[in-house]
């Protein structure tokens, strides 16, 4: 009787441990998670070769999941030259079709530029930044850029 009851207890312990490890697997399975938010995907498209003082059409393509976003509430392009974020400009983009929004822009001179799109759609905000090279830029300048790109664009100085 006594031994039998101990046996039952040991079995219950093993079963309960097995159950909880099964539970572990369930939570680790990413397919079980339901989707609440699908991030907006942004594709910034610029011509591969850019020359100063020429007008170009800059495009951004917006989609959420597989559907193009045609009803973005605000799409703006912010463009600035390296180390000159304060002198940058913001241009409101026009919707063309199938989630493509465009602006026209010309770059004033040679150099490394940043193009950031500020997109507000479906209650979300995204703002990816693309780096482009306009005209002739020395190897050295380009290299110093790609080393630590994230800190170059933050030279906005004091705030609060």
């Amino acid at each position: 009787m006594w031994k039998w009851m101990i046996g039952v207890f040991v079995t219950m312990m093993i079963v309960s441990t097995a159950c909880s490890s099964k539970g572990d697997k369930a939570t680790q399975d990413p397919k079980q998670q339901t989707s609440f938010m699908q991030p907006i995907e942004v594709g910034i498209q610029v011509p591969s070769q850019l020359e100063p003082k020429k007008e170009y059409v800059l495009q951004v393509h917006l989609q959420q999941g597989k559907a193009a976003i045609d009803d973005a509430s605000d799409v703006q392009f912010e463009i600035w030259k390296k180390d000159q974020l304060n002198k940058g400009k913001k241009i409101k983009a026009q919707h063309e079709q199938n989630g493509v929004y465009t602006v026209k822009n010309s770059f004033p001179g040679d150099g490394v530029y940043y193009i950031q799109t500020h997109v507000t759609a479906h209650g979300m905000h995204v703002m990816p930044v693309k780096m482009v090279v306009v005209g002739h830029v020395s190897e050295q300048e380009l290299k110093s850029e790609t080393d630590q790109p994230s800190h170059q664009m933050n030279g906005s100085g004091h705030h609060h």
Binding site: T27, Q33, Y114, M127, V129, K130, M131, S150, N154
Partner: peptide, 24 residues
């Protein structure tokens, strides 16, 4: 603590700086 961490989108973009993250 056990919230799965998503991954950032791939693409040819410059990572955002901490100032913009602070804005967010």
């Amino acid at each position: 603590e056990n919230l799965p961490v998503p991954v950032s989108s791939k693409g040819n973009y410059v990572p955002l700086g901490i100032d913009q993250i602070e804005e967010i």
